[in-house]
Structure formats: C-alpha cells, structure tokens
Simulated assay, not measured.
Amino acid sequence: MTRPARLCTCGQIVPHGVTCACQIAAKRERDRRHDARRPSSHARGYTGEWRRKSREWLIYHPDCAMCGRPADLVDHVQSHKGDPTLFWDWRNWQSLCAACHNRHKQRQERSQPLQDIRIV
C-alpha cells in the first residue's frame, strides 16, 4: 500500500517521501544566509593542527561511536562553543561516520536548549 501524495504550501502536489522543489530552494537560501553569518572553519579552530590531530585520533579510534561503521571525522561530544580548553580536550572527542554526524548528532545539538544566553 502506497501513501498518498500531499499538497505543498506552494500548491504543488508532491508524491509521498519527495521534497518539493520550492522547499529545496528555501532550504538552500536559509543555509546560504546562515553560512554568511558563520565564521570560517579556521576561525572556529579547525586549523592544520586540528586536521593532524583528528587524523591521528581516527587511526586509534577507527569506528563510529554511534553505529560502529568506519568513522570519517572527529566530533566534540560536548559542543566547545569556541572554548579552546574544551576544543582540545581529547576526552571530549569521539569518532563518527558522516551519516551519524550529519543526522543524529546535528539533531541532538538542535534539540539542546541554549544555555549560554544570559539575559541582563
């Protein structure tokens, strides 16, 4: 049994499981605006030294901490938010495959409340 098509907010009828072209374009535009405000990866601490250390980490920790597949990158368990001590603390590192990092880990970070904001 297949699920019925749906009506997109733009008025197009879209098959189940398919993203409408207008939603894809809107997401690209949101991402573009976000990236324009975001500092470069180098400014956030991801320098040549980080690349060397993360490659070394992956040699000793080759499997994804979430699914067990081969890991692609080193992730910070707790978001460092620019804190160099937390950034370089290897006890805060974990190996993740790209799929787990882009899906599960990003969802976790989005669902965490913003604790750094202080209202004065």
Rank of each mutant, 00 (worst) to 15 (best):
W50L: 06
C8K: 11
T19W: 12
C20Q: 10
Q23S: 13
Q78W: 14
M66S: 07
C20Y: 06
A21V: 06
A43I: 01
P70G: 02
T19A: 10
R44F: 04
V18H: 03
R30V: 01
H16W: 02
H34R: 12
P62L: 13
D35T: 06
D83W: 10
S79K: 14
I13K: 11
L7F: 04
E29F: 02
E49I: 03
R52E: 02
T85P: 00
R51H: 04
G48A: 10
A43C: 04
Q12M: 14
A26F: 06
D89K: 03
R30W: 00
A71T: 14
R51I: 01
C22V: 08
T47G: 09
R51K: 00
A5G: 05
A43P: 15
I24G: 01
P4E: 03
K81S: 13
T2H: 12
I13A: 14
P15V: 10
A65Q: 04
S54R: 07
P62A: 08
V77D: 05
H34K: 04
I24S: 12
D63R: 15
A36Y: 01
K53F: 05
P15I: 10
L73D: 13
V77G: 12
V14E: 03
R6Y: 15
W50P: 02
G45Y: 08
P84C: 01
Q23V: 08
R91F: 01
I13M: 02
V18I: 03
K27C: 07
I13P: 07
V77P: 11
D89S: 11
A71R: 11
I59Q: 01
A25L: 10
C67R: 12
R55D: 07
G45N: 00
G45H: 00
S40Y: 08
M66T: 15
I59S: 00
R6V: 09
W88F: 05
I13D: 04
W88L: 01
Y60F: 12
R52N: 10
V18R: 03
R37G: 11
R6T: 00
H61Q: 12
R52D: 01
R38Y: 13
G68L: 06
W50H: 05
D35A: 11
R51V: 00
D35I: 10
H80W: 04
R33Q: 13
M66V: 15
C64E: 04
E29G: 01
A65K: 09
T19D: 09
C10S: 05
L58C: 05
W88R: 15
A5Q: 05
R32G: 00
R3L: 13
W50V: 07
C22D: 02
H16E: 10
R32S: 13
W57P: 09
A21H: 09
K53M: 02
C20T: 04
C10L: 06
D63Q: 14
T47M: 12
I24P: 09
E49S: 14
M66C: 06
P4S: 07
L86I: 12
I24R: 06
H80N: 13
R91L: 01
A71V: 15
D63I: 15
L58D: 11
C10N: 07
G48K: 02
N92L: 15
